[in-house]
Simulated scan of single mutants.
Amino acid sequence: MTEDLKLTTEVKKQHTVPRFLLDNFGFEKGGKAKKLYTYDKQSERSYIQSVYDASTRNSFYNLENHPDKHSLEPILGEIESEASSAIRKVIEEESLSSLTNDERIQLAVFVVIQKARTYHGLQSIKALVTGLGDRLLNMGAKPEDLPNLIGSQDHSDLKNFFLETVLKHADHAEHILNKSWILYKTSEKDPYYISDNPVTLHNDVDMGFWGNLGLAVRGIQIHLPISSRLTLAFVCPSHEQRALQAREQLQFIVDHDISQFIHVKNPKMIVDYANAFKKGEAFITTSDNTKFLNSLQVRFAEQYIFCEEDRFGLVKQMIEADDSYRTGLRPTVN
């Protein structure tokens, strides 16, 4: 990253999800920029907009009341630039096999920064501070004591605190690098969504009170859609181990008791899934797999979901079933 990078910007409309990434979910409809179908979870309406306008907030990365008018926008632009060529390579080759170590590092940094930099991240900090304040008041604290106990609840102070933490998340890139990487591919008839909070986490391991959605916890699955057809996933190595064991068991049956082969459900998928980990080949997701990945985008989205087609039936179904999906996940204070 350039050491003498200018930390101010004239850009007012700032993307919380990079435009180069949103382009991969757009379609041509005249004009200079691609278009996106957009679904607003709060108003429950869909519409077409330019990628120039999608997932933007005015002066979002500019520090409040800073004497030198510093902004994170130039630094984030550098991180995007470094990762964009690696993402373009993955899309063109539909494979992870040729990524260099440097490109993997660039992608890992991009993922953890993208997870931290969204409007959802700011809203989560506000919700956490508010929840802590309410909890302390219920325990007998006085309102005038809260600034000393939990810090300022002023919008400008909370926003600056949020911005100060964004770049610190680069330290978490090692958690991405230590994961097993896999590339998912969907069919043209089932495009992937991307949202205004596109890095999603899922875990089938129940860890009770402690929660199970940390970057380093056992069983975690981290996803980032990079085009309408491709999703990058960084998963706990236990998933790869199970995939390789399943392929070994299949090979054992073939070598020692082929009569049992008829009892194996979808042997091709077993082989393809293991190869996706070992060779970097894209693993084709079923319609149900794609629906699940898209449901994570709905669940994590703060407000907006984007698609190359006007296909938001899943979003509507999820909101109808659970009204909390109108916003992103919120931290809770017990």
Rank of each mutant, 00 (worst) to 15 (best):
L5G: 06
L7E: 04
V11I: 13
V11Y: 07
Q14H: 07
Q14D: 04
T16L: 07
R19W: 08
R19H: 05
F20L: 04
F20W: 05
L21H: 04
L22N: 06
F25A: 01
K29Y: 10
K29F: 07
K29R: 13
K35L: 00
K41G: 04
S50D: 05
T56K: 01
S59Q: 08
S59I: 13
Y61R: 08
Y61I: 09
N62T: 12
E64A: 03
E64G: 06
E73K: 13
P74F: 06
E80M: 11
E80N: 02
S81Y: 06
S81D: 11
S81Q: 09
A83T: 10
E92C: 00
E94N: 02
L96A: 00
V109I: 15
Q114R: 07
T118A: 13
Y119F: 15
L122D: 12
V129H: 11
G131V: 05
L132T: 11
L137I: 15
K142T: 12
L149S: 12
G151T: 07
S156W: 05
D157I: 14
D157C: 10
F162G: 13
T165A: 14
H169Q: 15
H172W: 15
H175M: 15
I176H: 09
W181V: 01
W181C: 07
I182Y: 02
L183T: 06
T186Q: 08
T186I: 08
S187G: 02
P198T: 12
G208I: 14
G208P: 02
L213I: 09
L213Q: 03
S227W: 10
S228F: 07
V235G: 07
P237S: 10
S238K: 13
H239R: 13
Q241T: 12
A246Y: 12
L250Q: 04
V264I: 15
V264Q: 10
I270S: 01
I270D: 02
A276V: 03
G280Y: 05
I284A: 14
T286L: 01
T286N: 03
N289H: 14
N294Q: 01
V298M: 11
F306I: 09
E308Y: 07
E308V: 10
R311V: 12
K316A: 11
K316D: 02
M318G: 11
I319V: 01
S324N: 00
Y325C: 08
P331M: 11
V333I: 14
